[in-house]
Each structure stands twice: as structure tokens, then as C-alpha cells.
Simulated scan of single mutants.
Amino acid sequence: MPFSVSWHTLLDELDDLPEGATLMTPLSHDSFRVSEVQEQRVIVEFPDRDIDETRSLQRDQFETLYRRITDEPGGFDLDRLPPDADSYPAVLSLHPRFEIDEDRSVIVEKEGPTTSQLLDSGDEAEVEPEERTEPDLDVYADALLLVDALERHEAEVLEGMETGPLVNLYTLLSDVQRNANDLRQDVADVLLNRLHHDRPVSGPFGSVQRTSRRNRSLKDDEEVLETLEEVGIDRERVTGVDRDKVDDALDVTELSESDVYDIDRSEYVRKAEVDEEHKETRLQGLKDQLAAAEGDEAEELREEIEELEGRIEELTEFKSGASFHTRAGGEP
């Protein structure tokens, strides 16, 4: 099929888009709208950008992309696109024969039904709100308990709180921090397969990008020493005191730790145990309160729970070591 036929099919699809329809780029995940359709170009607008918010997508560039897609049996790799060019495949995905596979990061030509990068059709018809369900996640339950504890006590002035509420607050903060970090790692594992080439991907609350970390570990000691000796580095220059061997020596001598170590002692608070039964009872009470509440009270409580996700990030910035360590001086 010649490109001219596919091009006019695409223009027809663009002309049929409802006003205000929103699309999303497959790599940077920027939202944009088609503002004007011309014979030789498509004008798009990026409402979330402060600069370069309007772009003109040229027909000849669409044709180049079309040729590359049709020349590749498995589809065209989106990572091969020039920087900031992923709006082209997003628009082309409106054509009934082209589809973007974000998991594989390719755009392919298909014979059957396809999906597009259309996020919002722009229809103004009222849509029923999506029913929210309680997630079966430890961090959700602990965060709900934490919010309840923060609202029942004047946590802005910690010095004025009784010891019991402070213990509860510390325990819940610790649980939220641990469970939030576990969930954050699970989310990161899934995101890792969806991010490409250090290109930031934005969401309503922030952005993330794929990065790499360089880790080093020494090879076998003898191999390292022999390699260095071959280039004139004496063993004595790179060998030092081994802490494990020093500890072994202390075990078989009359020396004390203070003879070979400078010792500082610090004191800190740690969580000793958690009363899971009491937590579960209190959590069930909050759920029952929500289920039984009516009118403005119910709406207010629901709003508090809906705001919970937005507050978790702030709550989990708690650092127990930094907040509670105190110096106690050196040991004689």
C-alpha cells in the first residue's frame, strides 16, 4: 500500500478526533493534543510544557517512520527515534493498521484490531466515578492507623505528647517506612521494564527515569597483588589492617578493644515488638466507623482516606537513626 493512502487515512482519523482529545507519547509519556490538521503537517500542542509547547509534525517524517515500520517484520524499535520525536508514533497509532507495544518498545503494523495512544477522547459526558476498593497491602493498613494516630494527638509538638502515644507513633512510623520501602522496590522492579534510555517519565506527582549504578568488587587477593606487582606496585603499598584479623587477634591475646579501636557509643530508639492484635482491632474500628458513617461525616472520612496515598510519601521520609541518635561520648 503506498504511503499516500495511509497518510490520508491517518488524516481522516485525526479529523474525526473529538475536540480536546488527548494523546500520550510512548517514551516520555507526555500528554498532547492535535490542534490542526493540514495536508503536509499535523500541529500538536503540549499543554504541560512551558517551552516548545507547539510542534509541527511533518508529512515527510511520518513517511520515513512508515517506511521503517514496514521494513521491519517485528516492528520499529522506538528507542531508535531521535530525541523528542516520540509524538510521531503516538499520532501514527491512530491509524487502524499501526499499534505501539510499550512493553517491547516498538510500533508495529497489524492486520487486525489495534489500540492507540489516545488517553482521553475529550467527550464531556458525565462518567460514573470508578469504584475504589481497599488494597490488600500492609502499608495501606499501617498508613491508615498512622493517619488516625496523627489526627488524635498533637504530633506537631512531640515534647508535649505522653510516652504511650509517642511509642505508638514511633511503631507505626517504623512499620509504614518498612512496608512502603518494600512496595516501592516492587514498583521499581515493574517500572524498570517500562523505562528507556534515561528518558524521564512524568506522572501527576513527579517523574522517574532509568539510571545505572556501577558496582566494584575486588578480584581474588593474590590475583590483585600479582597484577599490581607486574607494574611495579609493592604489596605493602596496598595491604593494610584487616578488621576481621584484628578481632581474631583480640580473641587470643590479653589486649582490649580500646587498645586498637577508637570507640564511641551512641544511643537510639528501636522497635522492640508490635501488638498486631491491637492494631487489627483499631483498624477494624476505623473501617466500621467509615461503613456506619452517614452524610457529611462519611464524606469527610472518605476524603481523608483518599488523601492517604498523597501523604504516604511525606510520612515515609522519617529516618529513625537521624532523628533519635544522641552522642554519649567516648568509652574510656
Rank of each mutant, 00 (worst) to 15 (best):
I305Q: 06
D182Y: 08
P332I: 01
V238A: 02
A141N: 06
L144V: 04
H278T: 01
E303R: 08
G74Y: 08
A141I: 02
T9F: 07
V91F: 01
T115N: 12
T25E: 12
T326E: 14
G330W: 14
V224S: 02
L145H: 00
A322W: 09
R41V: 01
G160E: 15
L94F: 07
S207A: 12
R216F: 14
D198R: 15
M161W: 10
F3A: 03
S256E: 15
S35V: 12
V91L: 12
V208K: 02
D148V: 02
R270P: 02
N215D: 15
G203A: 14
L301D: 03
P26M: 09
S121R: 07
S56E: 13
R235K: 11
S116K: 13
T239A: 05
E276P: 01
A322T: 10
A293C: 03
D242G: 05
N168T: 06
R104L: 13
P129Y: 03
V274D: 09
G330N: 14
D242I: 09
E159T: 12
L10Y: 07
Q58L: 13
D103I: 08
F98S: 03
A298K: 15
G295S: 07
H29N: 12
S207E: 09
F76N: 05
D77A: 13
F3P: 03
D259C: 07
V42N: 02
L191V: 00
R213L: 12
L169P: 02
G329I: 04
T54F: 14
V5M: 09
R235T: 09
D48N: 11
R243M: 11
H8F: 14
R327L: 08
E303W: 07
L255W: 15
K110C: 10
G74F: 06
L195M: 11
V127D: 13
T133V: 08
A188L: 10
E63C: 06
V190H: 12
D12F: 12
K319Q: 14
K287W: 03
A249L: 15
Q58W: 10
R59S: 06
E280T: 12
E13Q: 14
N193W: 06
S105W: 04
S116W: 11
F324P: 00
R327V: 06
L195W: 08
E254C: 09
S323N: 13
H325S: 10
D84A: 11
P47S: 05
K319G: 10
L183T: 13
L301T: 11
P26K: 05
E53Q: 10
K271R: 14
E236A: 14
D264T: 12
M24W: 04
E130K: 03
F32M: 07
K287Y: 02
Q209C: 00
E229C: 00
S28H: 03
E36K: 04
P96M: 07
